[in-house]
Structures are given as structure tokens and as C-alpha cells.
Design a protein around this nucleic acid. Structure first.
Lengths: 106, 106
DNA sequence: TTCATACGATACCAAATGGTATCTCGTCAA
DNA sequence: TTGACGAGATACCATTTGGTATCGTATGAA
């Protein structure tokens, strides 16, 4: 029984949203704090945060008039799960794939 | 020096394109063969294949008047590479993430 | 040669997307 | 109580996206 991966893939498809995820990796942030890091309005950032929440990649916690956005590590599960569909395929070519990833990450 | 992950993430964001990748997992296929599996025109399928090629997820081989599309396992590397940005974060919560993924995949 | 066919290219359309502007609603502090 | 301020909601706009229709091109077979 798989969770539908579409909302998560959709959320990850925008570079601004991926940047937001990296920001939230270190600490939870309010909308205004996230918006400080981008050259766009708070409303636009809020839309991105909504898409990320729909994708299950972040959760929100209200505190007074502020809303803290926090990374949800479990949100990546459907994405990683979908990628395992190619495990068998990769097995055949695992050496070259590993090499490529190591080249990328070094 | 990372490859830009945007074209690959973009390519993965559409469910039709993800389905195409699953189809190509087993064997290379011409445009017409791919199109047989969907309720849309060959032209629409061709557009999806172009996006997948731009994302580096497939490669194309011409043979006569046919064009064979083949999965490129190395194309996933930028995606997997980007996901490793969260490795440290996941380490802290690895138990719950593992549990969630296993729940997903069982 | 002639013609069917597998593609590529282009023009076009409707809907989704990313953005701004603007208004309202709660909450906190003076 | 009265603002100031962080956030939500909505209307609106330009661009991108996913799709069709249609045309042209090149290959393979009769």
C-alpha cells in the first residue's frame, strides 16, 4: 500500500521549494524568516510552503501569531520508495551508478 | 561540482513521465510503442520523452525511421545526490524514517 | 517509382503555476 | 483600547505546461 508520491514529487520540482527544504534542515522557521532568504513576497513564499505541506515534506506549528515550519523527514519516504522501483535495474549497472554518484558528491 | 538537478526533478514531477520510466525499465521502446500504453497522442508522448531526455533520464537511439528510447540509470544520480543533503538530518531520526519506509514498501 | 508509416516541428488551446497586490483576521504590546 | 504586525484569503496577471491538430520529412517496402 503505497502513499501517492505525486504531491511530494510535485513539491520537489521547484528550485525555490528545494532551497526552502535546505533552509529548514537546520531549524524551523516562520514564513517571514523563510521569506527573508528570497527575493519574493511573503505571499509567494507562503504558497510554496503550502505546496511543501501538501507534499508532506514540512509540518506547521502555530505559536501565537507566528507559524513555524519544520522539515518532515518522513515526507521523503514516498519519493525514496518510488525510486526503489529501479533497484533491480540499477543492480545490473550498480558499479557505474555508484561511480557517478561519487563523482557528483565529491 | 554538482550537475544541476532541476531538469531531472522537473522530469520526475509528472506521473505520466514516471510511468514511462517504469515502462522503459524492462526494455527500450519506440515512441509509438510507448504511446500504446497511454490514452494520448503520439505527439504528447513525444513531448514527455523530450522532457525525460532533457532531464538525462533516458537516451535515444535512431534505427532507420524508428527512435528507440532507453532508460539512463545515471540520470537519477543528480536526484539521489541532492537527497543526500538530508543524510545528516535523517541520521537523527533514522529509526523512524526506516520504519516508515518499510511500512511503505511492505 | 510510389506510397504507407514512424517521426519531427509547428501552431494553437485550456488549464495549472508562480507571482503580486490587497484586504481581513488575530495576537501582542503600549 | 488602540495600533502594529504576522499571517490567511482572494483576486488578478503573465508564463509555463500538457495536450491536440496538422504539416513536412525520411525511411522501407511494393
Amino acid at each position: 500500500m503505497n502513499l501517492a508520491p505525486q504531491p511530494a514529487f510535485r513539491a520537489l520540482s521547484d528550485p525555490t521549494r528545494r532551497e526552502i527544504l535546505v533552509l529548514l534542515r537546520d531549524r524551523e522557521m516562520t514564513i517571514a524568516q523563510v521569506a527573508e532568504n528570497f527575493d519574493m513576497t511573503r505571499a509567494a513564499v507562503k504558497k510554496h510552503l503550502t505546496v511543501l505541506a501538501d507534499g508532506g515534506l514540512i509540518t506547521t506549528r502555530a505559536e501565537g501569531r507566528e507559524r513555524y515550519n519544520r522539515l518532515n523527514p518522513l515526507g521523503m519516504a514516498p519519493v525514496l520508495d518510488w525510486l526503489t522501483v529501479f533497484d533491480a535495474f540499477w543492480d545490473d549497472r550498480l558499479a557505474s551508478l555508484k561511480a557517478a554518484i561519487e563523482e557528483e558528491t565529491q
